[in-house]
Design a protein around this nucleic acid. Sequence first.
DNA 1: GGACAAAGTTGATCCAGATCAAACCTCGCG
DNA 2: CGCGAGGTTTGATCTGGATCAACTTTGTCC
Lengths: 234, 234
Amino acid sequence: MREEDRNDIRNLPLFRNMTSPAFDALMHAAYDQVFPAQLELIRQGEVANFLHVVLEGAVELYANWQDRDTTMAVVQPVATFILAACMRDAPYLMSARTLRRSRIVLIPAVDVRAAFARDHGFALATVQELSEGYRNFVRHAKNLKLRNARERLGAYLWQRSLDTGGAQGFVLPQEKRLLASYLGMTPESLSRAFKALRDHGVHIDGMRVTITDPAALAALVQPNTLLDTALNIP
Amino acid sequence: MREEDRNDIRNLPLFRNMTSPAFDALMHAAYDQVFPAQLELIRQGEVANFLHVVLEGAVELYANWQDRDTTMAVVQPVATFILAACMRDAPYLMSARTLRRSRIVLIPAVDVRAAFARDHGFALATVQELSEGYRNFVRHAKNLKLRNARERLGAYLWQRSLDTGGAQGFVLPQEKRLLASYLGMTPESLSRAFKALRDHGVHIDGMRVTITDPAALAALVQPNTLLDTALNIP
DNA sequence: GGACAAAGTTGATCCAGATCAAACCTCGCG
DNA sequence: CGCGAGGTTTGATCTGGATCAACTTTGTCC
């Protein structure tokens, strides 16, 4: 593994407060691999063998049932995913695929659990990470149940705007059909929701979004940290 | 606190593997209280001061935004709730109210975090509990996004049937309007969904449900541990 | 640079589930 | 025992978002 990547991982909240020996042991057991776009990394129902860390690229977490599919989250570098399944030693509830060529570190779940047992700083960080993941899914469920399609899109755009440093203009980080699936609607409905938001201070041109009237958008979506997920999801 | 209640708490997975001194310290700091029905225990947005343990009665976790409300979960004895907010020292994302007269133990969040730091068995149990909570919310979100109203109800009834020991007949544990809200639909739609399920092996009479044709119901809902939440929720 | 595929948009139509309104139960209580 | 309030069901109607189909745009690969 490259020194630089190692440092990126070391600086993640999850690993920041580990002792060096414990961290070294984890990294020693880990695999660093590059995967092409559209590769299925994990299939839901398999038992969790690895904690994944995305160093470059992007990974989609999705779920399916019968012939239906839905996007649950997008993981951007540098971040980990499916910690919960690893800690429980349980089957993955979601599948994962690369959205583009991605570099990913795989840490054997058994080593993660061993590190948890030995290193208190890591144990604490694990709980913080799990708690925040838990809370983000509570937010996702609240969003789905309490807001309609237009409001969900508006809230999403508002949050993206904040995440890009309060800039009024930004570029959508993923293609629209994926965003539609994440927000729980069809691509057609997303397209119409964008049109509807023109009356609420949002201008869209291809992938480029401009919030022309923040007050109007805020009035519609009532942004709220109890519903809106900060940071790269997706 | 009564000896019996103390034992019930001690036997919860979360507390089972604590050292006795650590458990005693936690219990020493805890309050044991009885609340009437319909009392708001927690309001979303407040900072988490207590981990709650339901000993008797039942507690509804719900969320609201603007003038809309939705039920997120029902906690049955003996179980804890809002561990994630306590560990993060963050605002509650959900409100909580008693559904009936309930006995609840309140453990100061600061003591919970201290116990986590000192007692490894508790730390491990905390992570297991959080992970499972996390996974249950993933399931809830998957359910909402992948199944329609009728399928959600069918899956719910299937799971309740399993939870009551595979019995074909059982009584709904909560009133229907609450169930409707939990399943993400209106009471009217729930009523119609019940009627629609008559063609899929479900008979309903008031609060009493009978699964007359398990194969037919299973064919409709395709029960699946990756979507369906076992145990008392709600 | 042209051609082909995939993503996105637009329009027409449909339908699951919401809303509104009116019974109809059920159960606690004076 | 009747009465009232809240829960539930039923019916009529409406509508947000899905579906289906056609068209346009964008990106990719010889």
